[in-house]
């Protein structure tokens, strides 16, 4: 059972950097490509939200921490930042987008939370003092 933590400064390439570090730490688990794709996609969406909404302006000291611990139920991730709170103190619902519409009405956004909630389990958000804490579980690497 592995546990690790990575920390990056927010910014345009922060998500790529964080994903690279997380995937390097997961190499020891020999996950299959589909499991890795799920982990990468869920974390990318969660981290994109932090970079875009919690830290809309890039400043020194805007750090994002990702903690991962492997348990019998899968990989448990906790993402923390000290940026702006989620609107209304909760995550968006992440409902599927209606794509049976005219091309010009086709949604170009709003898929991120749907993907997170579709692929991850036990998604919880808490604001504790000045910190956003997003926890989620991805049911891979189960023993």
């Amino acid at each position: 059972m592995i546990t690790f933590e990575v920390c990056v400064d927010s910014g345009e390439l922060a998500v790529r950097e964080a994903l690279g570090l997380v995937l390097a730490n997961l190499e020891t688990l020999s996950l299959d490509v589909e499991e890795l794709a799920t982990v990468e996609l869920v974390l990318a969406e969660a981290l994109n939200n932090v970079v875009e909404h919690a830290y809309p302006v890039t400043k020194p000291g805007n750090s994002i921490k990702i903690h991962c611990s492997q348990k019998v139920t899968g990989l448990h991730f906790a993402i923390t930042d000290q940026g702006y709170s989620m609107p209304n103190g909760q995550t968006p619902l992440g409902l599927p987008q209606n794509v049976e519409v005219d091309p010009f009405d086709m949604p170009e956004g709003g898929f991120g939370w749907f993907l997170i909630k579709d692929l991850a389990k036990d998604v919880t958000y808490r604001r504790v003092e000045n910190t956003n804490q997003l926890a989620l579980r991805i049911a891979v690497a189960i023993h």
Partner: peptide, 14 residues
């Protein structure tokens, strides 16, 4: 690899 932002960019191109 593509994320929801990349998907949105493809929809915008369409």
């Amino acid at each position: 690899f593509i994320d929801s932002s990349g998907l949105g960019a493809i929809v915008a191109t369409m």
